[in-house]
Design a protein around this nucleic acid. Sequence first.
DNA 1: CTCTAATCGAGACGGTACGTCCAGTCTTTCT
DNA 2: AGAAAGACTGGACGTACCGTCTCGATTAGAG
Lengths: 202, 202, 202, 202
Amino acid sequence: MGHTTSPDTRRHHGNRYGRSEDARRAVLEAVDDLLVEHGFAGLTIERIAAAAGVAKQTIYRWWPSKVDILLDALGDDLAEELVPPDHGDLRRDLREHLAAVALFLTTADAGAVFRALIGQAQHDPDLAARLRTEQISGQHARDRLPFERALARGELPAGTDLDGAVEQVIGPIHYRVLVTGAPVTREFTDALADRFLASRRP
Amino acid sequence: MGHTTSPDTRRHHGNRYGRSEDARRAVLEAVDDLLVEHGFAGLTIERIAAAAGVAKQTIYRWWPSKVDILLDALGDDLAEELVPPDHGDLRRDLREHLAAVALFLTTADAGAVFRALIGQAQHDPDLAARLRTEQISGQHARDRLPFERALARGELPAGTDLDGAVEQVIGPIHYRVLVTGAPVTREFTDALADRFLASRRP
Amino acid sequence: MGHTTSPDTRRHHGNRYGRSEDARRAVLEAVDDLLVEHGFAGLTIERIAAAAGVAKQTIYRWWPSKVDILLDALGDDLAEELVPPDHGDLRRDLREHLAAVALFLTTADAGAVFRALIGQAQHDPDLAARLRTEQISGQHARDRLPFERALARGELPAGTDLDGAVEQVIGPIHYRVLVTGAPVTREFTDALADRFLASRRP
Amino acid sequence: MGHTTSPDTRRHHGNRYGRSEDARRAVLEAVDDLLVEHGFAGLTIERIAAAAGVAKQTIYRWWPSKVDILLDALGDDLAEELVPPDHGDLRRDLREHLAAVALFLTTADAGAVFRALIGQAQHDPDLAARLRTEQISGQHARDRLPFERALARGELPAGTDLDGAVEQVIGPIHYRVLVTGAPVTREFTDALADRFLASRRP
DNA sequence: CTCTAATCGAGACGGTACGTCCAGTCTTTCT
DNA sequence: AGAAAGACTGGACGTACCGTCTCGATTAGAG
């Protein structure tokens, strides 16, 4: 977002005095702090405006709702933080990636934003749809990469259901994070990877 | 809940002879309908009171917040609807139970309540804790039953990690319901059961 | 009356044939205290019930509203405290009586009740009517007595408008108490008496 | 900064450019009507808001309570309606003014507001103080004017207690209005004026 | 010397209004 | 034109009392 001065007029800045970028940054930073400090319910537009030193109207001008601000704040963090490694070995790639996913969901700031959005998506089908098309499907594609490479290398038998594989290893992590609240340890994620491999390469 | 045909209507003159069962039932029924009809955000105390034909104060007298009403409404529905069958065969028990779980989460009214509570729990750690101790741990125990029986029957090797087994088959269902929004078909749940069995009984 | 009752019959709890004198007294006493302590607005039925250790229903059983309790509490205090003296001399009678009226209105507990009722009567025509027929007309008759006696003694000319005379001396006192809030001193009331006499006996 | 040449636009940038005069007027007019129609107890903030077509918050933004609205509504009505005439003759001035006062208190809409405030002031010392300093003392000064002019003209002896004179003629009117409820006729007010003059100019 | 009906305490009930908070829109002033 | 400020309508919040209503316990006269 920094200085995309190029022909990217799709975005919504466009102030001839150039001050809107200040406001935009202030809002996105405030939103992160306030989410951590006051929780999702305490994240009101008025509070964001006050904390960012920005007028409410300025927020409404650019973001339809507070979840849009969060989506914006989430930004490309997912893509940045959760790209799986490529060591040429499925077990190693999988173990590292699952550990990274767990860490992101449980401790990263962007992970808190992600969890809040997932939570809100349960009440708001529109948000759910947007979240899926804008973030989750992309992440799913990244999660698939290690399996695709392994298939290409012959580590997995042809015809393996790669999407199913992703769900098999990623699903339990989200289940712990979102539902049971059990800690997502390295042992747990390693076991997930190992269990998958055991079932595919007897 | 059942039919208060009670041998219990006298007795115990401490106070509160008076809690109105009618009011309680009306609120819990209204809450279910309104959640489906207006969504979680549209589920206001005032709307519940109006729909149930009850005074707001009566609601506040017995429930601290709307999520408490939902917890109450969820009540025994989980236990009633999601008790796994016992056919003496793990594959069959598992296939049926996972299908029932999927159906509950995606189509049942009580499933909508469950999803709303899970969503809200992402914003509210207290609710998360309560939800886990009051409902989810109990459901986890029920989900474990087929595995326990299979272990006793010798269908599973001694020392099998039963909790991990539950997470392995239940996790992906929740992942679809809560995160990706992909449809949870019978094929999907059957495949989960089969994949688990394949990995354990080579 | 209380001669024979045994020492621990304080608790009453119901009697088919008679109301509880304890409850009545407790309410009337509580009402006085609460009016002074919390003002008229803070004088709620619930607060009276709590302070008197009595159930709300018991209050509603015997008094239609809180102003009725106040009317009851005012009782015969007016008649008891504001009977004009009879020294056979109008000036002396008048001076003493006006001073007594002033003292009652400004400092007596019953005077506070009276002022509260007069205040409420400005908002409530029914109360105004009852207050007038039950209390104020009687007091007006008492206020007239010194003039009637003086007329009979020949201190006032035949045909003197006695009601007008009462209003002439009593009116300014109420005007200070209810409207201007100026202190009603002995000098003031004496001057009222003297001014009346000066105008009638040139 | 210092660019603006206009004399007083330099102040407080952004503080209530916006107070809506429409809203203010609508509230003050509604309050008059509703007081007459529903009485003081029926004069709720919610009803005022509804009748004025204004949000409750707008009322609370500008007035701390309903009595403050009434004080505002009373506003200049007193000064407008109750300025005594100046014919150069005390008897005529007094007769006319007292009749006007009586008419105001008994029949005018603003008179109803005044009576309600006086009534409420009996329960609320703060209101009493405010009412006196903001309205009653000013009215007392106006009531004094005829006497001051008469004194200057030599119609009254030097050293006459003018405040006492006001109380002598105004007090009985308020006494009838607030306490006895007797009708305040033209005969009554004329007699008050005449009686005063008889006592001062024997 | 029990029966019974009005009374008592307690407090839950359907309501109304309170005063506060925030959403989302609109207007005004300054830059 | 866009930003800060903030007033506006609207609506839900959670609280306080209202006046009504059971409820079991109490109690004195009638039977």
